[in-house]
Nucleic acid binder design. Structure first.
Lengths: 345, 345
DNA sequence: TTGTAGGCGTTATCAC
DNA sequence: GTGATAACGCCTACAA
């Protein structure tokens, strides 16, 4: 494997000059630069990234720490980040915290050790996620999807409260009365804020929130299933449910199906997050969708900007959600004929 | 940031001894080892991975190059690999070739430059994917999901031909006659082998393959949609279709739905790959499922084994597929009453 | 079992 | 604008 010295010898220059050409520094004689470039191609020289990393005390890696790689929301998000990374010359290391603070902590330690150029993280916990060591070491960090407390970092979110409020208001206006909420772990801000939006919708209409209809689960299919089963065991059971993420919704729908209940006749469903291939699911599901890919892109751009300028004040970008009305939440039987019609375009 | 020398000084030993303790080498006096360990914790020392990488001329990264990060098959596969990587002390760098040979080539060059410890790849092309430079540099490579020609590498596959044969035989036995096939790009072995299995099913029954019912698409939803639309424009249109991957199946189902055709009454559907949340889709889809997570684990284990022993002969592991009979392929009207019953458990 | 010496390939610093 | 020199932090001989 040729080194920078082999190139230098062949081009008749010194090693630092080769380095300058390789890094595109302007202060090099064009003639020498050209000699260097041809020497590089002749020898088939490739820069040793490892040596470069050591010398510069930094890699060209971004660590993206998501809560669940198998959740399509995060996959789409990562795709957005990945595209920005490619455009700006970075690699994306994808890590999966599994909503597990220990696993997450392990990855954060590793990211620090590898001296990654930056970290994008959906914190497993608002308070429990320890970003301080990274920040103290000067590693740029962007929080995504969820807030991180006590750490002034760039953040990309959606307006969870407003999105949830809109979804639940839609149910209230449809005539539903016993509207349950299946939300995520309390330590994640998404779980908390979507629950807050749920409550807000009631309050604005002067309605009372029934705490007995609120469940906290783990953002997974299984958690959604259990929470829904638990809710359906009540008498009377809820006539509608707002589920705060996509995977829990799948579980909730299974539970409803297992009891041979009909959506929306027996129970209406509105979900936060997109359900991939929602158009193939019957009935189709009303959702609050987030611009996942855009969130990832935005986080990537903020990270790239912070790497360029460490001093900049941290910013928080809030992207909008969209309520997609579909069959699972059509208005109650009394007024359904009218409402359903309006859902067909 | 303390270095190995700071630790050495504090522990009253030399730097190499610290290194030995850190790397768990046995030839260290237990007393000294203990002194080193406490010095490490007292100083909050963390090994500089970059320097280590340079010295060892290797990283602790695995590059996993998949054809489509947003395809749940690959996501599940990556989870399997990731788990093995964690168990063996590696990081997974996830790269997305997007079935694009140029993008793939770019990542392969980068992997070489970063001196990753190993590469797991689902080659975008049987012949076009250039693994030679990696292999010449001594980088362990495992091909996954698809074969790579001209490169003797460990490989993890499923029996695509048998799986496809089984699926199509099922349709033939159900009384379907004009069975179309939507398969992937010819350069990917999965596309070719599943098509071969389709043809094999016909031949074994002495039936004739109608080339006009075969379409090649890009393994994406859109490709499946277009191919299906094209097939449905025929008169008479096919009475069944075998689609060779999950995303194309989604597209095909959309196309069928757009024409207001009924599955399986107007056209039966059998898909290769699992459809996530297949149980929520109506009608439920008959699928040939692959053990995606296991494939990923297996690839990870082969990679770890090859890193330990470069000399070992390359092996190919073939995992089985499973045909899941569901509603979308129940036997034709003439005999449906009987067959449907057998599908309900 | 432990320490000494040297180098991995690059880039930063400083003269010139 | 260019080159000599040193250093990044670690690990692997080899010698003791």
């Amino acid at each position: 494997m040729p080194t920078i010295y082999d190139v230098a010898r062949r081009a008749g220059v010194s090693a630092p000059t080769v380095s300058r050409v390789l890094n595109g520094l302007p202060s090099v004689d064009p003639v020498l630069a050209e000699r260097v470039r041809s020497a590089v191609t002749e020898l088939g020289y490739r820069r040793n990234t490892l040596a470069r990393n050591l010398r510069r005390a930094q890699t060209t890696l971004w660590a993206v720490l998501v809560s669940d790689v198998e959740n399509p929301f995060f996959t789409a998000l990562v795709r957005g980040t990945e595209d920005v990374a490619r455009e700006t010359g970075y690699w994306v290391v994808l890590c999966n915290s599994d909503e597990d603070l220990h696993k997450e902590a392990g990855y954060l330690v590793a990211a620090l050790g590898e001296q990654v150029a930056g970290v994008i993280i959906s914190p497993a916990s608002e308070r429990g996620t320890r970003l301080a060591p990274l920040l103290e070491a000067g590693t740029p960090v962007v929080a995504v999807d969820r807030k991180a407390r006590g750490a002034p970092v760039d953040t990309v979110l959606v307006d969870n409260r407003a999105g949830a409020d809109q979804a639940v208001t839609h149910l209230l206006e449809g005539g539903y009365e016993r509207i349950a909420c299946i939300t995520g772990p309390q330590r994640a801000t998404t779980g908390a804020e979507r629950l807050a939006g749920y409550k807000q919708a009631f309050r604005r209409r002067g309605a009372v929130v029934d705490q007995a209809l609120i469940r906290h689960a783990n953002f997974r299919e299984k958690g959604g299933y259990q929470a829904m089963s638990n809710l359906l065991a009540r008498d009377p059971h809820p006539d509608a449910v707002f589920v705060t993420n996509n995977l829990m919704t799948v579980g909730a729908l299974e539970s409803i199906s297992d009891r041979n209940l009909d959506v929306p006749d027996d129970i209406a469903v509105v979900a936060f997050d997109d359900i991939p291939w929602a158009h193939l699911v019957r009935p189709t599901i009303t959702t609050v969708t987030q611009p996942a890919y855009q969130i990832g892109r935005c986080a990537g751009e903020l990270l790239a900007a912070r790497i360029r300028n460490q001093a900049r004040e941290p910013v928080t970008t809030v992207l909008p959600t969209t309520l997609h009305l579909r069959e699972s939440s059509s208005a109650r039987a009394s007024s359904r004929a009218h409402s359903v019609a309006s859902f067909h375009k």
